[in-house]
């Protein structure tokens, strides 16, 4: 019951979607079912995200309640979650401060606290990437040298001063980087990875539908 029913449900829902692919979405009932079921998946997925947020609240609340180490920081997390989420779910007809529109508390917190923090966090990675690159980028082998040279060329090419420097060596270098590195080798590898990942995803889908892959059930 606890395993068989979910496996049957996964097979049936997958099989219906598979069948729906071969039917006209405008004229046949099965074809029309596809967008409808997709919106169902989005709704269940939405609840899953809410479950994640509720889980964060539970974990942090229990730490605050037990006053475990760093509970003050966890309290800050809880206050931030509620400060952002509660005004967002209060109906906008009560006040323009509620909801998610322009001028709401949600919008203000996002624009003036969350968004700058996000940019700063990613900007900080510049320092760590530089430090990691200093340690990793040693021209010890042909492969490592290729990585080093390509990264250096692309970094130079992406900034006006670097591009001017490369053009100074030879006027065609920026174009050659764009053509042969970005649209040549890089695109080829991206295609290879996309094809490989797509074949893997298709194989995994078949395993899920046939009940061979059960890890999503915690097995």
């Amino acid at each position: 019951m606890k395993t068989t029913v979910p496996i049957i449900a996964a097979f049936l829902s997958g099989f219906v979607m598979l069948l729906a692919f071969f039917f006209n979405p405008e004229t046949s009932a099965l074809g029309k079912l596809e967008p409808e079921v997709l919106s169902w998946v989005t709704i269940v997925g939405g609840f899953t995200l809410l479950l994640g947020v509720v889980s964060i609240v539970r974990v942090n609340y229990s730490s605050v309640k037990r006053k475990s180490s760093g509970w003050g920081y966890k309290l800050a997390t809880l206050i931030s979650i509620f400060a952002m989420a509660i005004p967002a779910i209060v109906p906008v007809r009560w006040s323009s401060l509620f909801g998610t529109g322009t001028g709401s508390i949600y919008d203000w917190l996002f624009n003036y606290i969350d968004s700058p923090m996000m940019s700063t966090m990613f900007a900080m990675l510049a320092f760590y990437i530089a430090s990691a690159a200093f340690r990793a980028f040693r021209a010890r082998s042909a492969e490592a040298t290729l990585l080093l040279v390509t990264a250096t060329l692309v970094m130079l090419w992406r900034v006006p001063m670097g591009e001017a420097f490369l053009s100074g060596i030879h006027p065609d270098i920026p174009d050659l980087i764009n053509t042969y590195i970005m649209n040549g080798a890089n695109m080829a590898v991206q295609r290879g990875i996309i094809i490989g990942a797509a074949l893997g995803a298709a194989a995994m889908s078949l395993r899920i539908m046939l009940g061979i892959e059960r890890t999503y059930m915690g097995k």
Partner: peptide, 10 residues
Amino acid sequence: HVFAGLSAGY
């Protein structure tokens, strides 16, 4: 921690 909380709330 505020960043984590605000992002979850967002």
